[in-house]
Amino acid sequence: MNVLKPVLSLAAALLLSVAAAHATVRTETGLAESQAGASETYRLNVPTEKGVSTTQVRLVIPAGVTVTRFQVLPGFIRTIRTNEAGLITEVTWKGRIAPQEYARFFFQARNPEQAGTLSWKVYQTYSDGSVVAWDDTNPEQTPASKTAVK
């Protein structure tokens, strides 16, 4: 049994690192929760998990969230898509995140007035043309990042 314990600990550590290694949206301080109606600075953390570079990151803004501004990130070009009301619905950053690197994209937004769960959908494009959809199409492998609004 003593031999099995270190193996199980190593397996658990590897599973935790894999589960945590994906595109996530958190508050500036790293929380997965915020207050209803609050203005918040969010950070989108995107690691490159393949042997090729990430070349594009597209974030779909959850309904009810009003994005107001972005932090400049040298080396990236940002484009936005808006709806008929002029609200930002998608943001795309084009640039390069090399293998074994990550980038953090900061933006300010106002949360919805109602409590609930925000589901942030992120589409990560690699230089080989493949796209990883962090959007819950496969929640076990590519979950969307969630923020609890209370």
Rank of each mutant, 00 (worst) to 15 (best):
M1N: 07
M1L: 08
N2L: 09
L4H: 04
L4C: 06
L8T: 09
L8Q: 13
L8I: 06
S9L: 08
L10N: 08
L10D: 13
A11K: 09
A11W: 04
A11M: 12
A12S: 13
A13M: 08
A13H: 03
L14R: 10
L15N: 14
L16A: 15
L16N: 09
S17H: 09
S17D: 07
S17Q: 13
S17P: 00
V18L: 14
H22F: 08
H22A: 01
A23H: 04
T24D: 04
V25D: 04
V25F: 01
V25W: 02
R26D: 06
R26C: 03
T27M: 02
E28I: 12
E28Q: 15
T29W: 02
G30L: 05
G30V: 02
G30R: 10
A32G: 07
S34N: 12
Q35F: 03
A36G: 08
A38T: 01
A38D: 02
A38I: 02
E40V: 15
E40Y: 09
Y42F: 15
Y42L: 15
N45Q: 10
T48S: 15
T48I: 00
K50P: 00
K50L: 13
G51R: 14
V52W: 04
V52S: 04
S53K: 08
S53V: 01
T54M: 09
T54L: 13
Q56K: 14
R58Y: 00
L59S: 10
V60K: 14
V60D: 12
I61T: 08
I61V: 15
A63V: 02
G64H: 09
G64L: 05
V65F: 01
T66L: 11
T66N: 14
R69H: 11
F70M: 04
L73Y: 10
P74H: 11
P74R: 13
G75Y: 03
I80C: 00
T82Q: 10
N83Q: 05
N83K: 07
A85H: 05
L87E: 14
I88N: 12
K94D: 07
G95T: 02
I97G: 04
Q100W: 07
Y102V: 03
A103T: 12
R104S: 11
F105I: 11
F106L: 13
F106W: 11
F106H: 12
F107G: 02
Q108D: 14
Q108S: 14
A109R: 04
A109D: 03
A109K: 07
N111R: 13
E113N: 14
E113S: 13
A115P: 05
A115W: 00
G116R: 08
G116H: 06
G116M: 03
L118H: 03
K121C: 04
K121V: 00
Y123W: 06
T125K: 15
S127N: 03
S127F: 05
S127R: 12
S130D: 06
V131S: 06
W134F: 15
D136T: 05
T137Q: 12
N138H: 09
P139Y: 08
T142C: 03
A144K: 05
V149T: 09
K150P: 13
